[in-house]
Design a protein around this nucleic acid. Structure first.
Lengths: 234, 234
DNA sequence: GTCTATACACAGATAGAC
DNA sequence: GTCTATCTGTGTATAGAC
C-alpha cells in the first residue's frame, strides 16, 4: 500500500473553514443570537480567521474586541451576537479543534489493524491535520492557560487521550512481538513532542523549506528505528 | 567516565535566584533607580519569582501590575524603581535566561572533544539547566510573542544558535565516521523538541513520576539509536 | 527607597436606534 | 442583524509626600 501523502489527506477530508463554521453553528445554535445559517457561517468564518490571525501574532489576551471588530469589519455589537463573552469565543475555538481532531483520528484509524500500519497512519494523520489547521493548533497550544480551570483540565485530558492512542498502538505492537520492548509511555510522549514541534515552530520549518511530507517521513523513520532496534547487550 | 547526573550538575553550577539577581543587577545598574545592592537583589528576587509564578499560571499579559504589587508586597511605585515599564521587565527576564543558557552550555562543552561525548553532554546540560530553571524556560517559551519585534528576532536567533550546537556536533560525528549520515538539521531539531517537551509539559512528567535523570537517559538513548543505526537496505 | 493617591487610556460589555 | 454611543471597571504609569 502506497503511503498517504498530504495532498491525498486534504482530498479525503473536508476541512474548509466554511465546513468548520457550519459544524460550530450546529453545535451552538442556541447560544448564537443570529438565526440565518448563511449569515452565521459567513460571519463566524470572519471571526475565527481574525481571532486566529491576531491572537497568533500577539496573544488572545492582548487582542481587544476593538481589534477584532476592525479586522472582521463587524461592530462590537454585532460580534456579541455570536458569543456572550470573550472567554466563550476562546472556548468555542478550543472545543472545536479538539472535537475535529478526535473525529478525524478515529475515522482514519478505525480500519487499520496491524500495529506497524497503525503507528505510521497515526503519525501521518496527526501531522497532516495539524498542517491543514495549523493556526488552530498553534492557538490551542498557546492559549490553554487563558481557559477556565475546568476547561484547562479538559485540555490536559484531551492531550493525554491522543497520547493514549499512541501508547495503545505501541503496546499492541510489543505484545504481538513486532516492536521490541520499550517504555511505551515515553516513546508516545516523544512522538507527540515531535508532532507538536511541527506546528509550534512552523517559522523554522518553512525557512528551511522542509515539507510536511518529508517531516512525516522523518518522524516515522526515527520512531521505527527506535521501536525496531535490536536490543543492545550491556 | 561516569555520566553526570542532575545532582552533580546542581553542585557544579551556581544557579540560586540570588546569584541570578546579582548578575542582573550588574547588567542593569544604570536602568535601576535603587542603588544599594543588597536591597536591589532582595527585591529583584521577589519581583522575578512573583512574575514567573503569576505569568506561568495565567500569562504575562494577564498579570497586572497590581497583581505583581500584591504578590511581591511592594507598592506600584516601588516596582517602577526596578524597571521603567512592564515590557522592560519582560525583556530582562528573557535576556537573562538566554545569556545564562549560553554561558552554561559553552562552559560545560568546552573541554569535551569526542562527538559522542559532546552529544551526550549537550543533551544532559541543556536538560538539567532547564530543570534547574524550569519557570524561566517555560516563561521564555510562552511569552516570546509579547516581545518587541526586534526582541522576537533575537529570541529566534538564540533558538537557532543553540540548535546549531547540536548540528555541529552531529556533523563532526558524521565526518569522523562515528555517526552514520543523517539529516543533521532534522535530528538536531528533534533533539531540541524533546528537550523542550520536558519543561513545557512538566505537569505530565511529574504526574508520571519520571525523573529528569531517566528522561535524560531516554533522550540520549533515542538519539544514539538513530545516529548509530545501521543503514537499512531498501 | 517606598508609599499613597491619582491621572488618563482602554478594556469588555450592553442598550436602544435603525 | 447590525450599528453607534456609552457605561463601568481595570490597565499602566507617575507625582509628590514621607
Amino acid at each position: 500500500m502506497k503511503a498517504m501523502n498530504f495532498a491525498d489527506f486534504k482530498k479525503r477530508v473536508n476541512l474548509s473553514n466554511t465546513d468548520i463554521c457550519r459544524e460550530i453553528f450546529a453545535g451552538h445554535r442556541d447560544a448564537i443570537r443570529v438565526k440565518k445559517e448563511k449569515t452565521v457561517v459567513r460571519n463566524l468564518e470572519r471571526i475565527f480567521d481574525a481571532t486566529l490571525k491576531i491572537s497568533n501574532r500577539k496573544g488572545f489576551q492582548a487582542m481587544s474586541m476593538r481589534d477584532l471588530s476592525k479586522e472582521t469589519e463587524l461592530s462590537m455589537g454585532a460580534l456579541y451576537a455570536y458569543f456572550s463573552s470573550k472567554e466563550e469565543l476562546l472556548e468555542m475555538l478550543q472545543m472545536q479543534r479538539r472535537s475535529i481532531t478526535w473525529r478525524i483520528l478515529s475515522e482514519h484509524l478505525e480500519a487499520i489493524r496491524l500495529p506497524a500500519d497503525r503507528l505510521r497512519a497515526a503519525i501521518r494523520i496527526h501531522l497532516y491535520l495539524s498542517e491543514a489547521m495549523q493556526p488552530w493548533f498553534y492557538f490551542a497550544y498557546m492559549e490553554t492557560k487563558h481557559l477556565s480551570k475546568k476547561d484547562q483540565e479538559d485540555a490536559k485530558a484531551s492531550e493525554l487521550a491522543t497520547e493514549k492512542i499512541f501508547i495503545d498502538i505501541l503496546e499492541d505492537g510489543v505484545s504481538q512481538g513486532v516492536f521490541r520492548e520499550t517504555d511505551t509511555t515515553l516513546v508516545a510522549g516523544a512522538i507527540k513532542a515531535l508532532l507538536q514541534d511541527w506546528y509550534l515552530k512552523r517559522w523554522k520549518y518553512s525557512k528551511r523549506k522542509i515539507s510536511v511530507d518529508s517531516y512525516a517521513a522523518f518522524v516515522i523513520d526515527t520512531t521505527e528505528t527506535y521501536v525496531n532496534a535490536a536490543t543492545r547487550p550491556h
